[in-house]
Design a protein around this nucleic acid. Structure first.
Lengths: 114, 114
DNA sequence: ACTGTATTTCCAGAAATATCGAAATAACGA
DNA sequence: TCGTTATTTCGATATTTCTGGAAATACAGT
């Protein structure tokens, strides 16, 4: 697994997920799994204004956490597991060495969790 | 490990970490390890205005990601590994079932990562 | 009590964010 | 090309966030 080295990238993804509405959207897409969901289906499930949803999806998209693919007039959205995995890997490196193994840092190793 | 069930709590922690300055502060505290760092030491290392640093530390504090303890006139800050571990666990449950095991959800299981 | 050090709180301004309705765009089918 | 459906972009407003200087608070030592 490729370790995310860019702190700003990690921060951008954390910020993208750090909004209850967007985290709910992301969660919905994760649970939808491989087939993904059309924008309209997400809107239906969450009851957001179309423009609001579009705005949040855009944020998730530019953060790399969601991918989109056109299928006719509808756009299919999917959670990008790779980006999330990178992010979790980054957090694990920063804190919880026991969740994911990583190259030892020059600094003193962080204490084990729990 | 206790699974974090509150989406809003997760979002609050993600938001707290989703700012480059705060992520840097948090990272600094993680690397400082068990002895922690005084607020002034963090300020010294990162070169922030005292009030700005105080503001960000407060955000991390109320998110539960950092703990503080007074030692004389200085306040010692430490990364709260438990909170981070909970957060990583939550993200893993939402996305990457292969990082952490969790109770199966009623919805269809999310696809494996990578 | 007074002084010095460490840190927070208060204040204010600039910038970013969240929300939603209305209008615009994209793609399909007839 | 026209109409319909799906989605985004635009515009506008209310709220929140980020930043840092100045003042206030907390503690220790004398």
């Amino acid at each position: 697994m490729q370790v995310m080295t860019d702190l700003d990238t990690a921060a951008a993804r954390l910020e993208a997920l750090g909004n209850p509405t967007r985290l709910t959207i992301y969660r919905t897409l994760v649970r939808a799994g491989d087939p993904g969901l059309a924008v309209g289906q997400v809107q239906e499930r969450l009851g957001l204004a179309a423009s609001t949803l579009s705005h949040h999806l855009h944020r998730l998209l530019i953060a790399g956490l969601v991918t989109r693919e056109r299928s006719g007039t509808t756009l299919i959205c999917r959670a990008n597991y790779h980006a999330m995995h990178e992010l979790v890997g980054y957090l694990a490196d920063e804190c919880c060495k026991d969740v994911e193994l990583s190259q030892p840092s020059a600094d003193q190793p962080s204490a084990a969790c729990r």
